[in-house]
């Protein structure tokens, strides 16, 4: 992917706003270009990329991102999708103010303050998205993902499932079977536990 490099167990994205560290991450100059460290221990999206999920995003891609939080992972996508857009959906009041603040400094971040279950509120605003990313630890996370996937042109997306949010007492294997069943309407391209970074999270790369 554009503006993204890997050195050992760490990723780096070319800083869109040179000199500024978004959430305290290290800045590092490589061949005269400033990069921001993107640690897979601090971002599930980074862990997915390290674990070999190929999102095939271009510099001008538009991504719908659910569970944007304060935008630490989104800020790296913002480095990558320099000519694209990231629609970040976030439900929490505490987090959305931080995301708005980030969006005011990075022109490719589009904050949406809503519950990702209520797609009718925003589906017409984000219908140019080509990829869906979701990191929402809720009981109905797969439903939320499928609902939103219907907005995406080719139904491409990466779902990060927190297995403990679906069932606390079930074994990982059982939860995964449940998730696969729920995802039967789409093609699972890659599935992987985000071990060792997030042993109770599993990535599902899907396409329609």
């Amino acid at each position: 992917m554009n503006n993204l490099i890997r050195i050992g167990k760490l990723l780096y994205t070319k800083n869109l706003v040179p000199g500024v560290s978004v959430y305290g991450e290290n800045l590092r100059v490589i061949n005269g270009i400033e990069y921001r460290e993107w640690n897979p221990k601090a971002s599930k999206l980074a862990a997915c990329i390290i674990e070999g999920f190929d999102l095939k995003l271009e510099a001008n891609s538009t991504v719908l991102y659910l569970g944007a939080s304060s935008g630490s992972s989104i800020s790296h996508l913002s480095d990558i999708l320099v000519n694209g857009k990231i629609y970040g959906v976030e439900i929490s009041k505490e987090m959305i103010v931080r995301l708005i603040n980030l969006a005011e400094k990075r022109k490719n971040i589009y904050p949406i303050f809503d519950d990702a279950r209520n797609i009718d509120n925003y589906k017409d605003l984000v219908n140019d998205s080509v990829f869906l990313y979701q990191d929402i630890p809720q009981f109905d996370q797969v439903d939320i993902f499928l609902k939103n996937l219907s907005i995406i042109k080719e139904k491409k997306g990466l779902l990060v499932v927190k297995t403990k949010s679906i069932a606390v007492n079930k074994k990982l294997k059982e939860v995964l079977e449940l998730v696969r069943k729920q995802l039967k309407s789409v093609k699972i391209i890659k599935e992987k536990v985000l071990y060792p970074y997030y042993p109770d999270h599993v990535g599902f790369l899907v396409s329609g």
């Binding site: 857009k85 995301l99 022109k107 904050p111 303050f113």
Partner: peptide, 13 residues
């Protein structure tokens, strides 16, 4: 445009 998204989020907040 992006500014509209930001303003919408601000109003809703």
């Amino acid at each position: 445009d992006q500014e509209d998204f930001i303003n919408r989020a601000k109003d809703k907040f």
